[in-house]
């Protein structure tokens, strides 16, 4: 057996340096546009840490009763929008995925529709709906549902497209109709994937619904922003901790469910 020594190539290090240079160059340009000064950042950092540690701590326990309802509202908004979004997305995804689509025009239209919804952030939807529906939970619900539709249609479509074609062929070969193909060939296989994506989307929606309140969508985001504006930072901290606990709790529950079904 022969051992060869592989030297580091010269060109390779040239690539690396070009990359480093390009990144630095972009950083400088963008720093100029945003007037971001790294020295200033280093100088203010201790101040920020001090601000967070001194002004925001300790969390005010007495704020808990004030925001319990809005926290629950936030959770409910996330659950409703994810479930509604998942059901509608499932319908669209079946129309859009290659194995189950009725024709390619429908597919293209739904793809474009999903892309439009996906690429406009949920918060922007919320702002758009506020003038029509007024500040409140309806805005939050609509914005979250639309936002989740965009991403879930895409993820569900991908999941359905990854279904083993053998199953579909098997049902077709014994004379199964379109519905029978769906029922026995497609759906059972993609259930785990779809539930898993929906749970992931629920996590995203819980994060999003906490901030959607800041632009008038109801829920705990409003409480946080309101208290920061009033300089009652300890109250805001308590609410932020509650949000973090809610996020971590949902993550661990959905992880458990995923492990069970995958």
């Amino acid at each position: 057996m022969q051992f060869t020594y592989i030297p580091l190539k010269k060109e390779k290090s040239l690539y690396t340096w070009t990359g480093v240079f390009l990144v630095l160059f972009t950083a400088i340009i963008t720093g100029y546009v945003t007037q971001f000064d790294i020295r200033e950042a280093v100088i203010v950092l201790p101040g920020i840490l001090d601000f967070i540690l001194v002004d925001f701590l300790p969390p005010a326990l007495k704020a808990v009763p004030d925001f319990m309802t809005s926290l629950l509202d936030t959770l409910c908004m996330a659950i409703i929008s994810t479930t509604t979004g998942a059901v509608i997305s499932m319908f669209f995804a079946l129309l859009c995925a290659t194995p189950t689509t009725p024709n390619s025009i429908v597919k293209l239209v739904i793809r474009g529709f999903a892309s439009c919804l996906r690429n406009i952030p949920g918060l922007a939807w919320a702002i758009i709906f506020v003038p029509a529906f007024g500040i409140g939970k309806t805005v939050g619900l609509l914005a979250l549902t639309l936002g989740s539709l965009g991403s879930m249609i895409r993820f569900f479509t991908e999941t359905i497209e990854e279904v083993d074609p053998g199953g579909i062929e098997a049902v077709r070969s014994v004379g199964g109709s379109y519905w029978q193909v769906l029922k026995s060939g497609v759906l059972p296989q993609c259930f785990p994937g779809i539930i898993s994506w929906a749970l992931y989307n629920l996590e995203l929606n819980i994060r999003a619904s906490t901030i959607i309140g800041m632009v008038g969508g109801g829920g705990i985001g409003f409480f946080i922003q309101f208290n920061i504006k009033l300089f009652r930072y300890e109250y805001a901290t308590m609410a932020i901790i509650a949000v973090a606990v809610l996020v971590l709790l949902t993550e661990s529950i959905s992880k458990k469910i995923r492990e069970r079904i995958m």
Binding site: I48, I52, R207, A208, I211, M214, I228, V243, A244, V245
Partner: peptide
């Protein structure tokens, strides 16, 4: 665990 926008709000 704390959403991005809340960090920005603090800053």
């Amino acid at each position: 665990a704390v959403p991005t926008l809340i960090w920005t709000l603090i800053f």
